[in-house]
C-alpha cells in the first residue's frame, strides 16, 4: 500500500516538474524569437497585399481595354456584378448559338419553327437590352429569370420535334460551335477580381499583425497561421487556372474562413503567452524565486509594457506580506 502511495506521489511530483519545465521552455522559446524571423512573414504579406491591378493584369496578359473597363466599373456597379453580367451575356450567346443549330436541323426536316423563332427573337432582344457595364444586381436577377423562362419554353417545344438520336447529333454540333465562342477575358476578369479581393483581405491581416507587434507582442505563434493564410493563393488562386468551378470557390472560401479562425484563436493565445512571458521576465528581474514567478504568471492579469514593473512589485510585496502575516 505504501509503495502504491509512493508511486502516485512520485508521478504527481514528476507531472508538476514537467509542467513547470514546459512553461519555462515555452517562455524561453518565446523570448528567443527574433525580429528577423517575424518580419520575414510580414514582408511576404506586404508583397502580396500591395499587388496592383496593373501588375495582375500584366501577369494575366489581359488586354488593356478589359482592364480599363474593370477600373471603370469599380466606381459604379463593382467588378463582381460586372463579371456576372459578362457571364450572363456569354450564356445568352451560347443559348442563341445552340438555338441556331436546332432551328437549322428542324428546318431541314421541314418542321414548322415559327414558335421557336419567336422565342429566339425574345432571347435576342434580351441580349440587346443588356449592357454589362451598367446593369445592376436587380436588373441582372430580372434578365437571368427571363432567360431561364425562355430556355424552358424553347426546350419544351423543341423537345417534342426531334428524336433522341437527332438530339444527340444537334448536341454534338452545338458543342463544336459553342467552343468557338470561348471568351478568355471573362475568366481573366474573374482571376483579377479574386486576386484583388484576396490582396484586400491580406492587407487587413498584415495591418492586424503590425498592430499586434506595436502592442509589443511577438508574432512567433502567429507566424504559421500567417503563412497558412498566405499559402491560400498558391493553392487556389493560380493565374493560369482555367474553368474555376463553384466547388473550387466554395472550397477556397471555407479554407480561408478556417485559417482565419485559427489565426484569431492563436492571436488570443499569443497575447496570453506574451503576458506570461512579460510577468515571468519581470519577476526574475525583481529577484523572485522561480516558484513565485510561475505562480505570478498564472495569477497576475491586465499587465502591459507600461505597468508591468509596478504590477510585479505590488504582487511581490503583497505576496511577501501575506507570507509574513502567515508566519
Amino acid at each position: 500500500m505504501k509503495k502504491i502511495l509512493f508511486i502516485i506521489l512520485a508521478v504527481f511530483l514528476l507531472a508538476v516538474f514537467v509542467k513547470a519545465d514546459e512553461i519555462d521552455t515555452t517562455i524561453a522559446q518565446y523570448d528567443s524569437s527574433t525580429d528577423a524571423q517575424e518580419t520575414s512573414v510580414l514582408t511576404e504579406l506586404e508583397t502580396e497585399s500591395s499587388v496592383t491591378e496593373e501588375q495582375v493584369a500584366t501577369e494575366l496578359s489581359m488586354p488593356e481595354e478589359v482592364l480599363t473597363e474593370y477600373n471603370e466599373v469599380e466606381k459604379t456597379i463593382g467588378p463582381r456584378q460586372y463579371i456576372l453580367n459578362r457571364q450572363l451575356k456569354h450564356r445568352i450567346k451560347v443559348t442563341l448559338k445552340t438555338s441556331e443549330v436546332i432551328l437549322k436541323h428542324l428546318e431541314r426536316k421541314n418542321v414548322s419553327t415559327t414558335e421557336l423563332v419567336a422565342i429566339q427573337q425574345k432571347i435576342k432582344d434580351l441580349d440587346a437590352s443588356i449592357d454589362p457595364k451598367t446593369m445592376t444586381k436587380a436588373g441582372f436577377d430580372e434578365k437571368l429569370a427571363l432567360l431561364k423562362g425562355y430556355i424552358r419554353e424553347f426546350k419544351l417545344k423543341a423537345s417534342s420535334l426531334s428524336s433522341e438520336s437527332e438530339k444527340e447529333a444537334m448536341r454534338a454540333e452545338a458543342n463544336e460551335e459553342v467552343k468557338k465562342l470561348q471568351d478568355d477575358n471573362i475568366s481573366k476578369l474573374a482571376r483579377l477580381h479574386n486576386r484583388m479581393q484576396y490582396a484586400r483581405a491580406l492587407r487587413v491581416i498584415k495591418n492586424d499583425a503590425i498592430k499586434f507587434r506595436q502592442d509589443n507582442e511577438k508574432l512567433l505563434m502567429l507566424k504559421e497561421r500567417m503563412i497558412a493564410l498566405h499559402q491560400i493563393r498558391q493553392q487556389y488562386l493560380h493565374n493560369n487556372a482555367t474553368n474555376v468551378s463553384r466547388e473550387d470557390i466554395e472550397a477556397l472560401k471555407s479554407e480561408w474562413k478556417e485559417r482565419l479562425r485559427n489565426y484569431r484563436e492563436d492571436q488570443k493565445s499569443a497575447r496570453e503567452l506574451a503576458r506570461q512571458a512579460r510577468v515571468y521576465t519581470q519577476g526574475i528581474k525583481q529577484n523572485m524565486t522561480r516558484e513565485q514567478v510561475r505562480q505570478m504568471a498564472t495569477e497576475l492579469k491586465d499587465v502591459n509594457k507600461d505597468n508591468i514593473q509596478d504590477k510585479v512589485r505590488a504582487f511581490k510585496e503583497n505576496k511577501l506580506n501575506r507570507g509574513g502575516n502567515a508566519q
Binding site: 466606381k75 457571364q87 445552340t98 438555338s99 438530339k167 452545338a174 484576396y198 487587413v204 470557390i249 474562413k257
Partner: peptide
Amino acid sequence: GSTEPTSLEDVNDLDVVSDNEVEVDSLI
C-alpha cells in the same frame, strides 16, 4: 464610396467568383 475593410471580421468572407456563377439549362 469604395470601402476598404479594416477589421478581421470584415474579411471573414472572401468575395471571390467562379467561372460559372451564372448557370442556365442547355436548349437540347
